[in-house]
């Protein structure tokens, strides 16, 4: 039975754990490098990417995470997790921050602006609907969200969204010279897949739509066809119940 790790340094890891419980899958919180062993796949949740990078550094998690991604095990990053997985990030704090890398794309850390510019919207996701059923759109919650400025040739774009009109213009001052980059396209990429790496700029864990989580687990299944014939629902739902006994249901989902 697949064991899904959720990086639990900071951020919305509880929400991911709750989302996994809802679809009857056991999630494991990961805070130390040794806890990555024996996991089939890993979710890197949303949160403050700077904070998560600091905490990962304190406990020397980066080498283990790179190894995990390098081994081709399925990894999914939401929001801050997307930044972690990107090969290149712009718009960071002075001094920069360490990344895991692996996903061939350039991410702008705070593309959509500050909290007041956070928003939710209906995203068109035909790929997701084709694989997991349901409607052709999904609810995308963008919280101080990053966005993907450009992607490498082997990266599959799963969703994009129109650039909001009130978004502050991008002037990137990364490192030494002022690297001026004006984003002029009217749509921007917000969900991609490259092999076993899935990344979304929005937060499916904040919605009741569990299709993204199922999509991610199916990626896991594709790569581990052996010994993963069936998610034994009887035992996993028992796990879920056990979990809810000492841990109440997580925060509500506001529609």
């Amino acid at each position: 039975m697949a064991v899904v790790g959720v990086l639990a340094l900071q951020g919305s890891y509880n929400e991911h754990m709750a989302a996994l419980r809802r679809i009857g899958v056991r999630g494991v919180e990961v805070r130390k490098p040794e806890q990555l062993q024996g996991l089939d796949s890993l979710i890197i949740p949303g949160g403050e990417s700077t904070t998560m990078a600091k905490l990962a550094n304190y406990h020397n998690l980066f080498p283990a995470l790179r190894e995990f991604v390098g081994a081709g095990k399925p990894v999914w990053g939401t929001c801050a997790g997307l930044i972690f997985l990107a090969n290149k990030a712009v718009g960071q704090k002075s001094g920069g921050q360490e990344l895991i890398g692996g996903l061939d794309c350039t991410v702008h850390r705070n593309f959509f602006g500050s909290q007041i510019q956070s928003f939710e919207t209906e995203l068109s996701v035909p790929m997701l609907a084709e694989k997991e059923g349901g409607s052709n759109t999904c609810r995308g919650v963008f919280i101080r969200a990053p966005a993907i400025l450009d992607v490498g040739s082997d990266v599959e774009v799963l969703a994009d969204c129109p650039v909001p009109a009130d978004r502050p213009s991008i002037t990137i001052t990364s490192g030494e010279g002022v690297e001026e980059e004006v984003y002029s396209k009217d749509r921007v990429i917000v969900a991609v897949r490259q092999g076993n790496i899935l990344a979304t700029a929005f937060h499916p864990e904040l919605t009741s739509d569990s299709r993204w989580h199922r999509f991610f687990l199916d990626m896991d299944k594709e790569s581990h066809t052996k010994a993963f014939s069936a998610l034994s629902l009887s035992s996993s739902s028992r796990d879920a119940q056990d979990g809810s006994k000492n841990k109440p249901i997580d925060l509500p989902i506001f529609e």
Binding site: Q10, G11, G47, E48, Q117, S118, F119, E120, R144, E255
Partner: peptide, 18 residues
């Protein structure tokens, strides 16, 4: 839709464990 209650609670959810 911006500034819905879910978006407002969302930022707080991103601060959890911090």
């Amino acid at each position: 839709k911006s500034a819905t209650f879910s978006v407002k609670v969302g930022l707080a959810q991103m601060l959890r464990g911090g």
